[in-house]
Computed example of a mutant assay.
Amino acid sequence: MATTARPVIRVLPAPPGLPEPLPEPAVEDLRLETIFGALSGPLRLEIVRRLLLEREEFDHPCGWFGFDRPKSSLTHHFKALREAGVLRQRQYGLERRSEVRIDDLNTRFPGLLDLIASSSESGR
């Protein structure tokens, strides 16, 4: 039986001088059902998958994804992912940039990010 290679999650070092993250749940407060709820939409799942596999910088603004959606809609999706504990967001002037909480999620739910990274493209 042939096995397929698992996608490689891109982990980039944090640059110096990052702004403080916006409010987010502590690692011990992350709940699987809340995370599953946040990931249940195909667009949100695609946001996380792309940040895991295609990131070019430490964190990205919502415009990096190139989704043809209103900014207010995208803001709502990013906020839902942050409040569930999936994403970490920082404010850079007028721009919010996002990254997946890789270490926190791997600590709390081992294998979850590998599953997300292995999912097929959706939500575009």
Rank of each mutant, 00 (worst) to 15 (best):
L94E: 11
I9N: 13
G93F: 01
E20W: 02
E83I: 04
R88G: 10
F67V: 13
S120I: 08
R88D: 02
W64L: 05
A84N: 08
R108D: 01
L113H: 13
D68I: 08
E99V: 15
L52C: 09
E57D: 07
A117E: 02
D114F: 03
L74D: 01
P110S: 06
L12D: 03
R31Q: 15
A5C: 07
P19K: 03
G66S: 10
E54N: 13
V100N: 04
R50E: 02
G37L: 10
L52E: 10
G111F: 01
P61F: 02
E33A: 05
N106Q: 14
R31L: 12
A5F: 04
E95A: 09
R44L: 02
R108Q: 07
R101P: 01
A5P: 04
E121H: 13
H60R: 12
F65D: 02
D104H: 09
L12W: 07
V100S: 10
L112V: 06
L43G: 03
L94P: 11
F58A: 05
I102S: 09
W64S: 05
V86F: 03
E28A: 15
S72W: 05
L87D: 01
L32W: 02
L18E: 08
P16E: 15
R10E: 14
A117M: 07
Q89C: 10
I102R: 10
L18D: 02
Q91C: 00
G37Q: 14
V86G: 03
I116Y: 05
E83M: 09
L30S: 13
P21W: 08
R10V: 15
L53A: 05
Y92V: 12
E46Y: 03
L94R: 15
H77L: 14
L22Y: 04
K71F: 06
A14R: 15
V86A: 07
R69F: 05
R10F: 09
L74R: 01
R50V: 05
G63V: 07
V27Y: 01
F36K: 13
F109E: 06
W64F: 11
Y92T: 07
R6M: 12
G93S: 05
G63E: 13
T107E: 15
F58V: 08
D114W: 06
G37A: 15
L45D: 00
C62S: 15
